[in-house]
Structure formats: C-alpha cells, structure tokens
C-alpha cells in the first residue's frame, strides 16, 4: 500500500522528472535529491502548489560527504576480529538507504532543506548535491524569510555560495576567520584567535 510519503514522491517525480536525481522514504521520511539547476523551480512549486503547500522552511543545513564511509572508525571491527555478542549484532532491516549520487568531488557537499506544511502536516526533505569545484546553489531567501540566516550559516560553515543572497557574510564566525570549520578537512582544534596565544 503506498504511503503518503510514496505518494508525495511519485507526485514530484511525475512533475519534475528532469530535475530529480533520486528519492527515498527511509524511516518514513520522504527525501528527494534534485539537481541544483531545478532548485528554484521545485521549491517555488512546493510552496505554491496547494497539493504540497510547504509553507515553512523548517531547516536548511549543509553536509560534507568527503569522507563518507571512509573514517577509521568505519572499519567493521578491530584488527583482531572479536565478534560482537549475539545480543549486540544489528537487527536485520529490510530498509536500505542510498544517497542516490556518488560520494565524489562532484557531489561533495549537500545542501539539505527540511520543509513543513501546516496545511497537510507533513514534511519533506530536499537535498541538493554541490560540487567541490563550484559550490554554489541559488538562494531561497526570496521565497522564505528563514532562508536568509540559514544560508549565511551554511556559507560560514561549509563555504557554499548562495547566488542571489542579499547579504552573504559570516554569521557564527568572525570575518577574519580563514576556512570553513564544518568541512571535514578542517581540523577540529585549528584555532585562529583574534587575541591571545594559539593554544
């Protein structure tokens, strides 16, 4: 039986076949990955179409997939394999998650939008993969007022440029800060103090 999420995804697939890269409803949360060229068109339609009516941009964040599945801790066990006790082995699950795009430099970053519809009381996650060489997506600040600060934050933390943003500058870090701290290649304790020693 198709759920409401499946129905929503099917509707979007039918309407924007040229923009959608992938879609899934992992753990019951409908998610659609789209090309960045189609972002403005899809977002406008999501907001204005009464069948979807996503009037709240709940969250907008970035993600850096540079080291996805490659961290040292991702290795299944220590070098001397010590099997997990039976009660700790993962529960089998039929549900599989796929990102939908390869984890390469072409799709290194992702801008993730969480929409909420007050009319239908449902959510949708929209993801836009962004390349390392040209990290930019169109700004949604003209559609939702909330996008303004969230986009500034994503620029600050990931260095993703939002084209058409009215005031794209750092928001959490200071202007003299070099680099974008939430990128995976920014070391966690690389400090850039304004005053005082680097320690």
């Amino acid at each position: 039986m198709p759920t409401a999420s499946d129905e929503l995804i099917a509707r979007l697939r039918a309407r924007f076949p040229q923009h959608i890269l992938a879609a899934h409803a992992y753990r019951g949360q409908p998610t659609v990955t789209i090309r960045r060229e189609g972002l403005l068109e899809v977002a406008t339609a999501l907001r204005d179409d009464p069948a979807t009516a996503f009037d709240v941009l709940m969250d907008l964040c970035g993600a850096d997939y540079a080291w996805f599945g490659m961290s040292q801790a991702s290795a299944p066990t220590l070098r001397t394999p010590s099997p997990l006790p039976y009660f700790m082995s993962p529960a089998p699950s039929a549900e599989r998650w796929e990102r939908g795009v390869p984890h390469d430099a072409q799709h290194r970053f992702e801008v993730v939008y969480h929409f909420y519809s007050t009319a239908h009381r449902r959510r949708l996650r929209l993801k836009v993969p962004v390349s390392f060489a040209e990290p930019s997506v169109p700004s949604l600040a003209g559609l939702w007022a909330a996008a303004n600060w969230y986009e500034r934050e994503v620029w600050d933390m990931f260095g993703v440029v939002f084209e058409g943003h009215p005031n794209l500058k750092r928001i959490l870090m200071y202007e003299s800060f070099q680099g974008h701290p939430l990128r995976k290649d920014y070391p966690i304790n690389k400090r850039q103090p304004i005053i005082g020693p680097v320690n």
Binding site: Q29, M58, G69, S71, A73, S74, R96, W97, H114, R125
Partner: peptide, 29 residues
C-alpha cells in the same frame, strides 16, 4: 546502518530538530 533521520521534538522555544546522518561507523557522520 547508513542513513539519515530528522527528529523533531517540541522544545521550549519551538521545534527542536536533530538531523543525524550515519555512515555506518560508530561516530555520527
């Protein structure tokens, strides 16, 4: 397992969301 989830709870100030992405390792990605 690899995946992503956005949990929304009602915080005192409004919707408090945690968006967690897992890459199958023991650290949140």
């Amino acid at each position: 397992p690899q995946g992503e989830y956005y949990s929304a709870v009602e915080g005192a100030n409004g919707e408090l969301g945690f968006y967690v992405v897992s890459d199958g390792s023991d650290q949140p990605y």
